[in-house]
Design a protein around this nucleic acid. Sequence first.
DNA 1: GTTGGTGCAAAGTGTTTGCACTCTG
DNA 2: CAGAGTGCAAACACTTTGCACCAAC
Lengths: 142, 142
Amino acid sequence: MGKIARLHSLAGKRTTTQRKLLLDLIQQAGGHLDADELYRRAREQEPTISLSTVYRNLKLFKELDLIDERHFAEEHHHFEAKATVEHHHLVCLGCGRVIEFKSPLIERMKRQLSRQNGFVVTDVEVCMMGYCARCQESMASG
Amino acid sequence: MGKIARLHSLAGKRTTTQRKLLLDLIQQAGGHLDADELYRRAREQEPTISLSTVYRNLKLFKELDLIDERHFAEEHHHFEAKATVEHHHLVCLGCGRVIEFKSPLIERMKRQLSRQNGFVVTDVEVCMMGYCARCQESMASG
DNA sequence: GTTGGTGCAAAGTGTTTGCACTCTG
DNA sequence: CAGAGTGCAAACACTTTGCACCAAC
């Protein structure tokens, strides 16, 4: 899995206005964006940008390992800037809020798998669905 | 979350030939099916069945909690008969094979989350991606 | 007999692609 | 100034829906 070190984030790819804007928006966002939300935000600063450009660059960023793609229980994909620390997601089925969490248990699980099945894990997605404290309250009272 | 007990699996819904066939196929399959694969198998026994019927029934089965829907890193969804025992998935990026596993660590993680965030977890999806033993070998030799 | 379920075709999503034009390097 | 990247529209893959007919209850 040797990977050639990248000199800067775009690794020789051309730095177009659109590409830079998209990358900035993703990194600023902090949270999770889908292609459409990113498109909407990008158009505020670059009204002629097209949705294809958004998709093409998301694909590129993924290849360059600059972003992670997430598959929540929805039809479309979500993206987020590559995490410095691996973390996972709690999705509240009440309000739709996505809460990030991390747990050392996941590392242990990886190790267990490689020991038991000889499987080398390169990427983990943990998605827990349920109800956040707030939604539980409003269900109890409502 | 109160749920009226179901008398039998289809809970008052009509037992059509197609519906029964689809449910049988899913339960026999053991593994993971996508809508198209299910359609293909169903047509072997019921050549006039339509893809819409497959989708409509998958939706119904999901509502009746007879199947689980999975979101591997692909465009379409996979389904499997409701698991008696909660288990999770290893997806090999080399050969595409899906290996099931279970781990007590996941229960612990759930408990930790409810303790730390007051979040009640109703459903968990853990998807680990990487390379199975076989694919590691062929990468090393190839 | 009602009316829920089906098959078909048409529409709806989210995403990708072909092409001519534009701009980076 | 070559060719990577763009905008646009058309194509794509998967899923849902409207409608007329059919069959389970």
